[in-house]
């Protein structure tokens, strides 16, 4: 692999890796918040069926 391809590969790896790591962190944070909210506020789903 020539020097040029090493730089190209490193650039792609950095950008794709950076976005991928952030995406994984975001998905897990989003899922955790959703789970915790459902746990704290079970009425939320019930309220939808019987309007107050």
């Amino acid at each position: 692999m020539s020097l040029h391809w090493i730089h190209v590969t490193a650039s792609y790896a950095l950008v794709c890796g950076g976005f991928l790591i952030l995406a994984i962190a975001t998905i897990s944070r989003h899922a955790a918040a959703k789970r915790r909210l459902a746990q704290l506020d079970p009425r939320a789903s019930r309220r939808a069926q019987e309007p107050s």
Partner: peptide
């Protein structure tokens, strides 16, 4: 080939 860095 280095020009491919452009795309990111």
């Amino acid at each position: 080939e280095t020009v491919r860095i452009l795309y990111v």
